[in-house]
Simulated scan of single mutants.
Amino acid sequence: MSKLKLGIPKGSLQDATIKLFAKAGWKINPSHRNYFPEINDESMQCSMCRAQEMSRYVADGTLDVGLTGKDWIEENESDVVVVSDLVYSKVSNRPARWVLAVAGDSPYEKPEDLRGKKIATELCNFTRKWFSEQGIDVDVEFSWGATEAKVVEGLCDAIVEVTETGTTIRAHGLRIIKDMMYTNTRLIANKEAWEDPFKRKKIEQINMLLKGALEAEALVGLKMNVPADKVDTVMELLPALTAPTVAHLHNSDWVSVEIVVAESTVRDLIPQLVDHGASGIIEYALNKVI
């Protein structure tokens, strides 16, 4: 039987990706001894590789489908099918950004001030292209890591580095002078795999369930009992995703009400519901909302 070859990003996104797949219904068990974790789906085989390399392996057919950032797709100029954007990360569940940063006491205030200067980054192709499009001649060199420290140590004049919150940048005494690119995780597919009916259907299934799992992360279910004569009042309080489900309780003047709401609203909503007659309120987590 043909199997779909799935790539999971190894490194900072690994745990978040495995957790997301678990909510979507796929249990991935990584092993420290190899790069081929077990997955509870006989129609799939799983491989681990760095996000920086993922788009190359998908483009050349080593993998049928994988997850990596928009940044590395652009850096590698990979010819792949972008199935969808999946906004999740190891920290903030929002798009990360590549920024141009200089030392806090540096005289540089804008990209033009760096003309003729040295810039260290892991994202060399993108950085060269970006500065070329701005008409600014700079010397871009590849950084193997600890990029923030290179400005402090005087090894370069500026860096182009990825950040989610900016905390690490500031912790190194650096100052951001330009946001260069926003990036998020993308589900990408090999072009030939995308044209294969079996593989395309499987990729679309993965996409649907991963997006459903992400949608559910900010939502919870609420279930409660409400006196029948208070239902209209309670309904006015409910910011439901869809119309609430209402069921009459057997031999009772009460009804059962069930809704899906944003988790951020619950701490204020539950006391209001109690004040208006609701009782037996149950809050429960959701795995997927589709």
Rank of each mutant, 00 (worst) to 15 (best):
His250Gly: 11
Ser92Gln: 11
Val260Trp: 06
Leu273Ser: 06
Lys5Val: 11
Leu67Ser: 02
Trp194His: 06
Gly145Pro: 06
Ser12Asp: 13
Asp64Ala: 05
Glu283His: 10
Ser279Tyr: 14
Glu217Pro: 08
Asp139Asn: 13
Leu269Gly: 00
Asp268Ser: 13
Thr167Asp: 09
Glu42Ile: 06
Lys223Ala: 15
Lys90Ser: 14
Ala103Gln: 07
Ser279Met: 13
Leu222Trp: 00
Lys191Met: 06
Ile119Cys: 05
Ser78Ile: 01
Lys110His: 12
Glu112Trp: 12
Leu100Met: 01
Asp253Leu: 09
Glu161Met: 09
Lys90Trp: 12
Lys70Val: 10
Val234Phe: 07
Thr17Ser: 04
Ile73Val: 15
Lys10Gln: 13
Val58Thr: 00
Leu63Arg: 08
Ala171Val: 00
Glu258Arg: 10
Trp254Ala: 10
Ala278Pro: 09
Thr265Cys: 09
Ala24Glu: 02
Val160Asp: 01
Ala240Asn: 05
Thr121Lys: 03
Leu123Asn: 11
Cys49Tyr: 12
Ser12Gly: 12
Thr17Tyr: 03
Val83Arg: 03
Arg33Gly: 14
Ile28Tyr: 00
Trp254His: 13
Asn225Phe: 14
Ile270Gly: 02
Pro197Lys: 07
Arg170Gln: 13
Val261Gly: 03
Glu148Met: 04
Val138Trp: 06
Asp179Leu: 11
Glu42Leu: 07
Met54Val: 02
Arg97Tyr: 07
Ala189Met: 01
Thr163Ile: 01
Gly212Ile: 07
Val289Lys: 12
Gln14Ile: 05
Leu187Cys: 02
Glu258Ala: 14
Glu38Arg: 12
Asn225Trp: 12
Gly69Asp: 04
Leu155Trp: 12
Glu263Cys: 04
Val65Pro: 04
Gly11Arg: 05
Asp229Tyr: 09
Asn251Leu: 13
Phe198Gln: 15
Met54Pro: 04
Leu222Asn: 01
Pro37Thr: 01
Ile39Pro: 05
Lys19Phe: 10
Ser31His: 10
Pro30Tyr: 00
Glu141Ser: 13
Lys202Cys: 07
Met48Gly: 06
Val81Lys: 10
Ser2His: 08
Gly7Ala: 08
Pro197Ile: 03
Ile188Asn: 03
Ile39Ala: 08
Val257Asn: 03
Pro107Glu: 06
Trp144Gln: 13
Lys199Phe: 04
Ala171Pro: 00
Glu283Val: 14
Lys27Leu: 13
Asn40Val: 00
Phe21Val: 11
Gly221Trp: 05
Ile18Arg: 06
Ala22His: 05
Val255Asn: 05
Met1Gly: 11
Asn125Lys: 10
Leu86Gly: 01
Leu209Thr: 08
Lys201Leu: 11
Ile206Gly: 00
Trp130Glu: 09
Asn251Gly: 09
Val260Leu: 13
Gln205Ala: 09
Ser12Lys: 15
Ser31Cys: 04
Trp254Ser: 08
Met180Trp: 05
Cys156Pro: 08
